[in-house]
Design a protein around this nucleic acid. Structure first.
Lengths: 215, 215
DNA sequence: GCGGGGAATCGAACACTGTTCTATCTTATC
DNA sequence: GATAAGATAGAACAGTGTTCGATTCCCCGC
């Protein structure tokens, strides 16, 4: 079981989501295809478990970080750590917190996130919504960024700046009257850093939360 | 081309993402499988175009709504309209704004969103980040909600409350010492409305944005 | 009227996927 | 040593996206 999961994660890390097939995994484990089905009911469960396995590392990192006296700061640290993990492993986005019956590590992370809101002056409902919002921002933006990697980038045929530049060029060719906003931000887009973009989005949510908690 | 797209969307609406196969689509169009490849290079492009086709309706709705004098209010209206569309068609989440070369409607919607930020006192970079954040919240939460529909709900074998209740029960069985937050919010979770959850998340981001714009 | 040539169509095949069936080993307990 | 459960594996099945080559359609210049 343990070996199945670690090997599955390794396969995902090396060649992406499409590389994780039962046959490839079986070959790596030096066994047959059907053996995997003894540990796991279907591919969805395999991914659920693999994702939770990977979240374990995130949880370790987060727990090792000392708690500050500001819950908002702690929320930020956890969110950023999770974000980094998803950027490294884009497949995490689709399977994080999908089935907490199986994903105990993820549930722990969710709990840890929520515990920070217990230190804020909020109603239970506000706490629930706050954590959902933060998870949404992290997973949403990370997923968006992970999928924008269209093979060419992975193989190194073309670098990121050129990839962004191609889109920027077609955007610049648009009618400025009709697309004033696109023209306003095209330069920002062309040289943008994904992490900055995420941090800005997170900061907006945290600012709103701080306001709500009356701090 | 037009027929291919409308029929593809119809198929997706009726039976979900897994029902859109080239063979099923061909049969519906009364033609052969390979004919579709004359209009579209591969399945990804088919989904890209189908998504953009569906976004067209969103764009119409949004443009018909009268602009208020508060850009934040307008941002909210657009965000909510897009959210509702994605809840209706969960497959939109994965393909929205994935390739603006092909998705002209989506680009228009993006522009419309951005134009509201032009009325706020922000730097170009802040505007870019603001729109990314809002899109992230909408797509992120909508995607999360759309995927939690695990067949049983679609077929009506079990209703939503029971589905949530099952998770709530396993959560309640957890150790309260170790999971104080989960216990704090489990009742909220059991009876929660997805739309409220989204609106709360959106409001946090908008509040942060309002603060940033100094309004 | 008549080719000619691109636009459009289609069926059959290919390589690959998740999943299941059935038969076989392995191991520990009585 | 027999029995039953834990664990493994090969072969087959149904279904997928995609490609190939041949075929039809239809319009335009001669």
């Amino acid at each position: 079981m343990e070996a199945v999961l670690t090997e599955a994660v390794a396969l995902l890390d090396e060649s992406g989501q499409s590389a994780l097939t039962f046959r490839a995994l079986a070959q790596r484990l030096g066994g047959g295809v059907a053996s995997i089905y003894w540990y796991v009911a279907n591919k969805d469960e395999l991914l659920d478990r693999a994702a939770d396995h990977a979240i374990g590392a995130v949880l370790d990192t987060v727990e090792r970080q000392t708690r500050t006296d500001d819950p908002i700061d702690d929320l930020r640290v956890i969110a950023v750590t999770l974000f980094d993990a998803i950027v490294d492993r884009p497949w995490l986005a689709s399977y994080f917190m999908r089935n907490t019956d199986v994903q105990t590590q993820s549930l722990h992370l969710y709990e840890l996130l929520g515990q920070q809101t217990l230190r804020l002056d909020l109603t239970p409902r506000q706490r629930f919504h706050a954590v959902s919002a933060i998870v949404g921002v992290v997973v949403g933006t990370a997923a968006d960024m992970g999928q924008e990697t269209p093979q060419e980038l992975l193989e190194g045929d073309v670098d990121r700046d050129e990839f962004l530049g191609r889109f920027a060029d077609t955007w610049r060719a648009l009618d400025p009257e009709e697309f004033p906003f696109v023209h306003e931000i095209v330069d920002e887009f062309a040289g943008h850093d994904d992490k900055d973009q995420f941090l800005a989005a997170l900061e907006l949510t945290l600012a709103g939360l701080k306001l709500q908690a009356g701090a």
